[in-house]
Design a protein around this nucleic acid. Sequence first.
DNA 1: AGAAGGCGTTCAGGCGGCGTTCATGCCGGG
DNA 2: CCCGGCATGAACGCCGCCTGAACGCCTTCT
Lengths: 221, 221
Amino acid sequence: MSGPRILVAEDDPELREVVLRGLREEGFDVFGAATAARLLELAERHPPDGVVVDIGLPDADGRDLCQSLRARGVTAPVVFLTARDALPDRLAGFAAGGDDYLTKPFAFAELVARLHALLRRSPPAPAAAADIVVDPVTHAAQRGDRSTPLTPTEYRLLALLVARAGEAVRRRELVQAGWPHGAIAHDNTLDVYIARLRRKLRELESSAELATVHGVGYVFR
Amino acid sequence: MSGPRILVAEDDPELREVVLRGLREEGFDVFGAATAARLLELAERHPPDGVVVDIGLPDADGRDLCQSLRARGVTAPVVFLTARDALPDRLAGFAAGGDDYLTKPFAFAELVARLHALLRRSPPAPAAAADIVVDPVTHAAQRGDRSTPLTPTEYRLLALLVARAGEAVRRRELVQAGWPHGAIAHDNTLDVYIARLRRKLRELESSAELATVHGVGYVFR
DNA sequence: AGAAGGCGTTCAGGCGGCGTTCATGCCGGG
DNA sequence: CCCGGCATGAACGCCGCCTGAACGCCTTCT
């Protein structure tokens, strides 16, 4: 639910399920696709932190898929899976913008280890919506060259609201996101944090606002 | 002479020469070492953009070497070479902070491809930021013509903070970098060192500061 | 061997940021 | 028009952070 998001393109249903379940158990937030076209759709809707691609997909070569992803601005690391272990194949994979190359049959633990190694080099891309950016490294909200620091709780809330910009986020979800350890006593605490975030957006002179959806929650837009 | 700088630790003279010559022909700026100790020296004098490490070095395990490098603020990607291709060995390599793992005999072209793939994700870490330079040779922090000596622990911490200037470094990482051998009792010790580094930056009249990111760590900026 | 200094660690006291609650006023819906 | 949900400034207590000081260990010099 909150781990790094991994997209998997694999046409063999059995292997796909194995990989999906395994990655889910490792704490990743995973989505699976059987075709290159479907994976591109997924990537639009759920910008990934990492991608696992079978070279032999029914509708396209995995390397072409990788290049399509890069062309669409997806910078997340790409791991290729393949039965072909010939050297030229591997070199072509790297040339296409891939980051790693695993030959079937592979040990699942190694896929996980390599994914983790790649992810620690590629921190999650900052979430952005409207004119403001939430930087996960700095824990700050920035608009253009201006920037305001966020407290840990403010950061968790704003990150969720920005990630789901344009869509109403229920109070319940915000409370769960902002206070992962235990619930808070008064719901009013959330109101206070929303007010503080509004003030900080105002200080940044952002065009974005945190609109309240009466009886439901809030929207970032 | 001006390409990315690669350090190679390999005790077999023949293989080392092959790798060094090949990488040089690829346009890398390469240095070779036969032992872990020698490679650590090299890393001080010539901060690398990438490192190639044989697991079986005469004076140390390649994974220990990798951890030593990380503890000294070297953030460059590390590729392991080994004759042992057992899965647990590979997993241990990744756990030690390695970025890739190649089993001998390997195709030289694949080493190059993997190095390039890693380098395009790892922009060279500067040893200088703002107006401060941290000199690996003298273990001193200098600004313009002024200079202040650093104790070993101070050096490790400041090197890491400067290498990742502008980005919040977590307390955990700083503790791991500053005290590679074992954990320290009180986290407060880290606070004391930060305070001392701040004082030294102040004495240099630097424009840089060590800002604290509450609940996260510190930023050099 | 004794002296001296450098380095790492611990302690104590103080301060400020952060999360929470409260009080008060507003707005929207039934 | 009234009520319940929401808005927001203010205040407060706690925990994390800051820093000067002192202590013990180790190395080095005499």
